[in-house]
Design a protein around this nucleic acid. Sequence first.
DNA 1: ATCGTTAATGAAAATGAATGTCAATATCAA
DNA 2: TTGATATTGACATTCATTTTCATTAACGAT
Lengths: 140, 140
Amino acid sequence: MSLSETWLNQMQSDGSRLTAPRRAVVEILAEADQALDPGEIFERARRQHPAIGLVTVYRTLEKLEALHLIERIHQHEGCHAYLRAAQGHEHVLLCERCGKALRFVGDDLEDLITALEKRTGFLIREHWLQLFGLCPACQA
Amino acid sequence: MSLSETWLNQMQSDGSRLTAPRRAVVEILAEADQALDPGEIFERARRQHPAIGLVTVYRTLEKLEALHLIERIHQHEGCHAYLRAAQGHEHVLLCERCGKALRFVGDDLEDLITALEKRTGFLIREHWLQLFGLCPACQA
DNA sequence: ATCGTTAATGAAAATGAATGTCAATATCAA
DNA sequence: TTGATATTGACATTCATTTTCATTAACGAT
């Protein structure tokens, strides 16, 4: 089963109906190798389903985010792009030039977090780690 | 010399003129122990300088950011709050409840980054690390 | 297969943060 | 003190996102 099928099933289990515009948006996001913002998703979705409205894109994003299937990616240039959600301790590595996004696991932060909790008295519940750079293709 | 005086001097060296509304904004940001968004800064600045316009807040933020004295802090609820910029390898620890922000140094990411570069072929140029939790006061 | 409930849709209007314009004002070097 | 010019605040504008609403479509029940 492909990722988009899995997502569609999860949406349906959640009470959502499977419609053509929704399928288009889900497929785009499930297959994307980069974070996409609502405008970009809208443009791509139109190719498959010309009648789709931008509002539907927003609404589908909302649902997918609520199900933790996608999440917003924060960058200097803007914070409105979405990417498939991190699983477990995954973080993200982004190409500053072409936008290519890679998930990676690499959680060596336990020690740092424990030490900080002791020193500051904070109770740390979440962390964001993002790396930015140039992908192989964009270094040329 | 206080931090706001230092910032004002830097702005002046950069060719900016020191005006009352600008002083108000700078003082608020230099002394804040939490990230503040333009609206919050505007409200606070009005108390010292009732005639100030919101536009001036935006313009002052722009200048301070260009001088790397403040930087935008990204959070779930919004990405429009500003905090004094990180120095060197500082990162930020935020209280999810009251917004209190703490800078800390703790850069043990070199190994992770080197390993990732080798594995992915990316050239990594920057990283963001943010921790979220509850400050001592908000745990009660 | 058909029906009926109700979720979902797209168009249009509304909202609201951020930016651009501009005449009046204030800073600060000379 | 003066004058060039950066800065100001009011107002208008832009543009992404949300809201509203009548219509359409999905899908469980029959």
